[in-house]
Design a binder for these strands. Sequence first.
DNA 1: CTGTAGATCTTCT
DNA 2: GAAGATCTACAGG
Length: 202
Amino acid sequence: MQKSPTVLVAPKNLPEPSNLMLDHAWFKRPTAVVAADLIGCYLCRRMEDGEIVRAMITETEAYLGIGDAGCHAFEGRHTPRTSVMYKEAGTIYVYLIYGLHYLLNIVTTEIGQPEAVLIRAVHIENEPIRTGAGPAKLTKYLHVDKRLNNHLLGETVGLWVENKVQDSVPVSVAKRVGIDYAGDAAHWLLRFYWTGHGSVSK
DNA sequence: CTGTAGATCTTCT
DNA sequence: GAAGATCTACAGG
């Protein structure tokens, strides 16, 4: 009997953002703390037709800037793609990987400190458990692409995060995925996921 | 069920 | 020219 964790209080699919919306200061904390804290929170997207989709975050990864060989901004690398990582906490960083997949990150910490959290998996109510099980799958479902890059989270751009409604969420830590080239940093425990949840990436 | 090819943009060698 | 913070389809055992 493999039942996925039950949401104690159902997410309100209200037509408007709720007062649980996280402000930018919430993301201006140590990146690993933000990444762990995001598990159980809701990634909210206003779709083209005006409907708001609330997707519960079940997996994240922290990328720790200039000292992290797995981070795009390693050793202060500053390119057209990575410049957004140096901006203010709460800024959306979307980039194209392998020429066809968009991945969603949220910038953290201070301006000038290129750190971010990658959203790796979400669970969308009333959808198959694997619908948002992967960083590229969730962006496809939520229509997240380059248009959002460089904008602050909020109702204006149609993408924001609302706080979790559960009191305690079981969180596990593990090594990050897909950065075997990063040497030592490949072993850092910067991946966070809802323990045993069926929507966590493979 | 495991393995791998292919898609094809951005960055670095 | 090569490889990447990935996913899907399909071949083979």
